[in-house]
Amino acid sequence: MASAFVVGDTFRNKVTELLEKSDSSLPQRLREELEETLAKPEPKTLSFSTARKLRKWLQDKGHPFYLHELLEESSLHLPEVLKPPRNPELVARLEKIKAKLANEEYNRITRNVNTQDINRSGTLADFGQQMRSVKALVLTIFNFLVTVVAAFACSYMGSQYLFTDTAARVIAAVIAASVVGLAELYVLVRTMEGELGEP
């Protein structure tokens, strides 16, 4: 917290003139404080209490200049804040907590990494498992297409007894194939959900 001014050249010049005047009736204590302020090495600081005494004396004597004019080029002196040393026990605890949090974050990130899978990558067993899954997928798609085409063909052939117009027969076959395709998709999705372990 500020408790002094860093005085500028205006203050130095005016106070020097004031101190040199032999007829000035400066109180002895105020004179000593002002001389001590001017004798300080740079930066020269003027305490607030001395500034108050000087302002009061200037007001009482009716001098033609005011304190704010004296302090025109001055600034507040903000002393350097000294940080207290950190407690070594606290620092050690903080480092331990940081290490623990970093370890937990690492474990969370690498939770789903299986080192055995990494070591086995590229083996013939993995290739066989991948081929089985691809084969199952191809068979499922082929089965879906065969079912839809067969439903279309059966509906087209069977609708000849109901409709004589070819356009009506094609529309009836498309509707029947769409219904069978949607039913097949429903069964396929439910089967895949069961394989993934979802209800």
Rank of each mutant, 00 (worst) to 15 (best):
P199Y: 02
K53V: 08
F142S: 15
V91D: 09
T50L: 03
E105K: 14
K56Q: 13
N112G: 02
S75W: 07
A92D: 05
W57R: 01
L26D: 04
V6D: 04
V146P: 05
N103V: 01
K135R: 13
A153V: 10
V170N: 02
S3G: 12
L137S: 15
L78I: 14
K61W: 05
R29Q: 13
R190Y: 04
P27M: 04
S3I: 07
V187P: 01
G197N: 03
E42P: 10
T123Q: 12
E42N: 13
L71I: 03
V6I: 15
V91Y: 00
V170E: 00
A153T: 13
G194S: 10
Y156M: 02
K14E: 14
T110M: 13
Q59T: 08
V170Q: 03
N112F: 14
E33D: 15
M131N: 13
E80I: 08
R108Q: 11
P79T: 05
R111T: 05
K21L: 13
E195D: 11
A183E: 03
M1R: 08
E198Q: 10
L38C: 11
L94P: 00
S178C: 02
V148W: 00
R29D: 12
K21G: 08
V81K: 12
R29I: 05
P79C: 03
T110E: 06
G181C: 04
E69W: 01
F142H: 13
E36G: 15
